[in-house]
Amino acid sequence: MGEPFFFHRYAAGTGWYGLNVLTRPIVRESRSPEAGRTTEHKETTLPGGKPHATPRRGLALLSAVLVCVVLAPPLAAADVSPADLNAAVRSLGFLSSLQNRSSIVIGVVYNGADPASKAQAARAAAELVRLAGPRSATIAAFVVAAQDLGSQHYDAIYLMGLPAETSRAVSDFVRRQGVVSVSYDPACLEMQTCVLLVQARTSMSVVLDTALAKAAGAKFSTVFTMLVKRK
């Protein structure tokens, strides 16, 4: 497997909007279940956290907001957000192979040539293990460079924004290992690297690449496939 991250039991009460607790930097001790070694890192607030405002301050801001609202452009697709990650995990709940699983292993795939991508993947992995998996399954997340994908076994992989030159390696990995790949980056559909595009922005967008899903042997419930857009 790639670089080990930590394996964290989901804490009750930090569910759907659990990210709101991350409004200040915290230090978390994390441990790899395989290597058994502990790493220490700082978590910071990820984009998408909700601002807190008092009603009085909010009322003062409201008029300005109203003026701008009609002209407000749609949110641009940017870095991965906690909402993206949460939605990705929810989507995995509709995967047949993960029904009744008590734990799920997710590889977070980044561009090995870009240190920023690695840092972003680390933050995403930290967030993923905080989330409750389908039917309260625990989640273990490991970061791995796209260039290092080989014979690792994951239940699913989460793709950060990846350059086109990595698409072949990722796509081959998905098909060879029969693993579901999920990403927030719309470019993954063009590169045929993601089985699922899951993007939580102005509205929730979930696109299923049916051909890649078939190649990976991934079967989602029919209810789910009818709810999402299919490519």
Binding site: G93, M204, V206, L227
Partner: peptide
Amino acid sequence: AANAQSMDYGSIEQLFGEPA
């Protein structure tokens, strides 16, 4: 049948942030 699943409204609502 491979994976019978009636409408799990709760999971769908959690995923999409809106009812199904």
